[in-house]
């Protein structure tokens, strides 16, 4: 590792706040990008499955 200790690593010189906030925002953006389509897929599946069942009952 480049840093002497874990405390050094978290401090990032004097730039800890800048570096870690960037990585935090990146994590949020990435999780958002995964979560949105997965939630959408689940919603669509439930909706169209209900529709299918309704159609089957009517017949």
């Amino acid at each position: 590792m480049y840093f002497e200790s874990w405390a050094d690593f978290w401090a990032m010189g004097k730039h800890g706040l800048y570096v870690w906030s960037c990585y935090g925002i990146a994590a949020v953006v990435m999780i958002y990008n995964i979560w949105v389509p997965l939630a959408q897929q689940k919603r669509f599946k439930q909706r169209y499955l209900r529709q299918l069942r309704r159609e089957a009952q009517q017949q």
């Binding site: 590792m1 480049y2 840093f3 690593f9 990032m12 010189g13 004097k14 730039h15 800890g16 800048y18 570096v19 960037c22 990585y23």
Partner: peptide, 16 residues
């Protein structure tokens, strides 16, 4: 974040 060396002028902020 952990293994690359720091930059001479920017220090660790360059890791962004």
């Amino acid at each position: 974040l952990a293994f690359a060396p720091a930059e001479r002028f920017q220090g660790n902020s360059y890791r962004i």
